Amino acid sequence: MEFQKNKLIFLSIASLFCLLFVSLIFSHKGVANIRYVVFIIGLFYTWYFVKIIKSDLSIAILLFFVVALSSLFFNDLPVDESVRVLNWYLAFFAGCFFAIFLNSKTKILYAVFYSYILSYIILFVLLVSSNSEIGFENNRYLGFTPTPNAMGELIGLGIIFLMFVLVKSCEKKNYGIIITNISLLIISAYILFETGSRTAFFITIFMTIVILFLELKIKKYVVLLSTLFVLVFLILLQNKLDDSRMFRNITDPFSISSMQARLPIYNAAWNCFVDKPVLGYGFTNFGSCYASQKKHMEKKYSLVIDKIPDAHNFLLQFLAETGLLGFFIIMYIFIKGCYFSFKNFKVAFYILIAMFLFFMINMNMYLRELSTIFFLMIGFSFFYRTQLVASSTDSKY
């Protein structure tokens, strides 16, 4: 029997995919456990398993693991943190594996994305209605994530998906989905605003505009939808605009303390790369790198943070921690992932670009929820509707 025609297996895999997306919002440990389950199930499908691990992206991730391990070892650091890359590989494998099962089931796949969106909406309603202090930090909403910025980015990805589907629905005049998506967009935008994440907010807005202009073929809808969202946004948030941190000092962003503090961080990261250009200061070891540069930064800048765990920049992070070897490999993975997503699964392309922009300001890729989405989208795009998937339907188990 062709395993793609086995309805029970298909529904089980779709449910597992749905559960993984829900876990990205509700359960930090659940994300890891489900990835393990997917990997174990994949072992039973030998042909697919071998194809995945032999792919160039698979090899690239494993090579990055070797570089991460080496960067720690040659800096006399514990090598435990290199395991993080293997967790990225599990997410990549899960994306490839799900693509094999769901390659022609776009409706099922979109339903999975909607489960993700409903998850963060339900979580927000539950936390607010219960007056729980859990999920808020200094009046900024953070759900169950470590920071409000991370929560904002997770919600921003949901908004990008909704906008993409809305555009496609406008072209097909599917009014039911149009109304549903507009409603979910309004709710999602409100929750995003509650996180207070400037990075997530403005990058999400930028990406939705990009999607409107690049994907919407009927251009008269661009003005209509843009006007609608601006009006709804102003009506919902008019009482919060004056005192919102998102709009404060927007004309002079470097007057904001967090932006001022990033300059010495970026400078320190670059100096660390120059000091150790081949393997860097060690994977996930930016804190030590920054500490070595702190006194020098204090002579150049008026605002220097005492301790910082990451470089707040995707490119500088890997240059400082893993040198040129790690940097080129991670960029190859990202660029190849963008290529396959643009070619095979367009919504993943916009999600990956948005995540890259997020990580250029807030380097949250080391958070399990965000790294899982990142590598899940790369793996899914790599196998989705490819010749490999098409030819695999002829294999029987």
Score class of each variant (00 low, 15 high):
S115E: 06
F345M: 10
A311K: 00
L263P: 02
F382H: 08
E2K: 15
M207Y: 12
D394F: 07
S132A: 04
G379C: 00
S119D: 02
S119M: 06
V230C: 06
A268Q: 05
I361N: 13
F349Q: 01
L102E: 14
F247K: 05
G135L: 07
L126Q: 13
L184H: 05
T322P: 00
K219L: 08
S183N: 12
V278N: 02
G30E: 08
F358V: 06
E133G: 03
T386A: 01
T199N: 15
G379I: 08
L212F: 10
Y332R: 08
K173T: 11
C338V: 08
G282P: 08
S55H: 11
S244A: 12
I9L: 15
S130Y: 11
A111N: 10
I159V: 03
K5N: 14
I329V: 03
T204V: 06
L352C: 10
S15F: 15
E133M: 10
L370M: 12
F92E: 02
I256H: 04
S341F: 02
F345V: 10
I134H: 12
L316I: 03
F206M: 10
G158F: 15
K29L: 13
F286L: 00
A14K: 14
N75I: 03
C96T: 02
K107P: 04
A99L: 06
S130L: 08
I160W: 09
I187G: 03
L237I: 09
F273Q: 11
I177S: 07
F10A: 05
W270R: 09
N139H: 09
G379L: 05
T145A: 07
E321L: 00
I351Q: 10
C18F: 15
K172D: 12
S395Y: 01
L185E: 03
D275C: 03
I373Y: 11
A111Q: 09
A32T: 15
E369K: 06
I41S: 10
I333L: 06
K396F: 13
S129C: 03
S392P: 10
N181V: 01
I256E: 11
F383Q: 05
D275Y: 02
I353E: 14
Y332D: 09
M355P: 04
K107F: 07
